[in-house]
Every structure is written in structure tokens, then in C-alpha cells.
């Protein structure tokens, strides 16, 4: 961005905030005019993924597998104390390390993906709890200064959350540590760019599966069941 003139024209203004790699991809876009040039992908999206997805869409076939991007990951839960919806301090590691967990990052004024993420937990909670009684559900606000315990309580009530479903808020920096530990930190330091991640963990292990995408109830249950089977096989193999 020009130091001398911070009132550039509209197009310059739009361009000025873009990092160099983006400008390069825009240049490619401009030259091609039509939007057929694959853009630079995020760190996690390989070109192959884009091509695969594009070809899937171009054939107008609904992908059977690959509607969600799944990532296996080990998470070292940071040593932070968060606050639950009743204002009670909660040690995050103690809460989730010793039990099977479904974890999501949400915020209460989010309009598009958080209500769908949250309602998906609401719909599968009882059924999953029957499959795995140790299962705990955790929803962590990524807008902690807005989402005070009072507002989290109202949000939890809206989705009929009770029992082993904990809603957490806390210090902005602590939440950022948690987001980073789970590889969920969003670009631009703007929560509006967060991703629809659901994290699943069976048992006490530190091994999580991250599902990127909005799952339906049956997909959610099937995925958790699959993880349980995999964990059982792994246990039997030990």
C-alpha cells in the first residue's frame, strides 16, 4: 500500500491490501480473462485436490467420497483455562484429554455455518452418546469478548444443549492458542473467515480427526462409528 497516498482509487484500494502472491494470481486471472485458470490454493489444498473437485463438478456428479476433507492430527491441547457458559473456569486439557470428544469452534452471532455446525451436534448427540457414553461435546467460541457466558447460555439454550455439552469462552489470546493448536486459526485475523471444522476423538488418545465441511446427521454418525471401529482395531492390535 502506498505510504504517500492512503486514499487510492477504488481498484487500487482493493488491490492495495492484497499480498504479492495474490496479486500474481490476479494477474494470471486478468490475462486469461475467463476464470479458468486454477488459482493458487491455500497451503492445505493441493492443485490435485482442486482439479479433482473441478472435474467432479464439471461432470455434474455428486461426489460420493470427498464431500468432506478429513485430516488426521495429533493435538497438544494448550494449558489454558477457559470459562463455561455458567462463568465457571474450565481447564481445557482436563476436560477433553481423558474422554472421547466432539469439538467445534463457533460464535453466537455467526449466521451461516455455525448454526448448521451446532444443530448437527444437537441432532446426533443422543445417538452418539448411546454409542459412546464417555463422549463429550465441546463448542468453543472464537468471538470470546462478544460471547460472554450469558450470551453462550442463550445460544446453548437455542440448541437445547444440556448434559455433556460444554460451551466455552475465555481470554481472546487463550482462544487463539487453542485455535492454533487445532490448526483452525483463520486468515486475516478475522473470525468471519473461519472454516466449518468438526474435530472428533475416540478415547483418551491425542489423535483427532478434523472434518472440514458441514455433515448431515447420518454422515456424522457414520463418521464417528468409523472412528470407533478404527480405534477398536488399533486397541486390539496392541
Amino acid at each position: 500500500m502506498s505510504f504517500q497516498n492512503e486514499n487510492p482509487s477504488l481498484s487500487k484500494r482493493l488491490l492495495s491490501d492484497l499480498a504479492l502472491p495474490l496479486r500474481v494470481s490476479m494477474l494470471a486471472l486478468a490475462v486469461s480473462w475467463a476464470w479458468l485458470v486454477p488459482a493458487s490454493a491455500s497451503d492445505e489444498d493441493s492443485l490435485e485436490t482442486i482439479r479433482a473437485e473441478l472435474s467432479t463438478v464439471c461432470r455434474h456428479k455428486k461426489p460420493v467420497e470427498g464431500r468432506f476433507k478429513k485430516t488426521q492430527m495429533h493435538v497438544r491441547v494448550p494449558d489454558v483455562t477457559l470459562i463455561d457458559s455458567h462463568g465457571k473456569p474450565i481447564d481445557l486439557a482436563s476436560l477433553i484429554e481423558d474422554s472421547s470428544t466432539v469439538l467445534q469452534f463457533i460464535f453466537t452471532t455467526c449466521t451461516t455455518i455455525c448454526p448448521v455446525l451446532t444443530v448437527s451436534v444437537q441432532k446426533v448427540r443422543e445417538q452418539l452418546a448411546r454409542l459412546d457414553p464417555t463422549l463429550r461435546f465441546v463448542s468453543i467460541s472464537i468471538d470470546p469478548e462478544q460471547d460472554t457466558p450469558r450470551r453462550l447460555r442463550a445460544y446453548a439454550k437455542r440448541f437445547g444443549a444440556t448434559g455433556r455439552w460444554t460451551f466455552l469462552t475465555g481470554d481472546r489470546h487463550d482462544i487463539m492458542h487453542v485455535l492454533k493448536a487445532f490448526g483452525a486459526y483463520y486468515p486475516g485475523n478475522n473470525k468471519m473467515y473461519h472454516k466449518p471444522y468438526t474435530y472428533l476423538k475416540v478415547g483418551k488418545s491425542g489423535r483427532w480427526e478434523r472434518v472440514d465441511g458441514l455433515m448431515g446427521s447420518s454422515e456424522f454418525i457414520a463418521e464417528y462409528r468409523r472412528l470407533m471401529q478404527r480405534a477398536a482395531v488399533a486397541d486390539a492390535g496392541r
Binding site: 482493493l14 491490501d17 492484497l18 495474490l22 494470481s25 490476479m26 476464470w35 479458468l36 486454477p38 488459482a39 490454493a41 491455500s42 489444498d45 485436490t49 482442486i50 473437485e53 473441478l54 467432479t56 463438478v57 464439471c58 476433507k69 483463520y186 486468515p187 486475516g188 473467515y193 472454516k195 472440514d212
Partner: peptide, 24 residues
């Protein structure tokens, strides 16, 4: 029209599915 999608395309980080959707 790309002028109306400028921010969504270049100011936000989008997954492959987004690009597929707006380019199809």
C-alpha cells in the same frame, strides 16, 4: 460478474470447492 465477487475471491481464503462453484 467478477467485480461483485472480488472480495470473496481475493480477500478471503477459499477452499477448492468455492473456486469450483464460482467457476463452473
Amino acid at each position: 460478474h467478477r467485480s461483485y465477487l472480488f472480495d470473496k475471491m481475493f480477500k478471503e481464503e477459499q477452499p477448492a470447492s468455492f473456486w469450483a462453484k464460482i467457476r463452473q
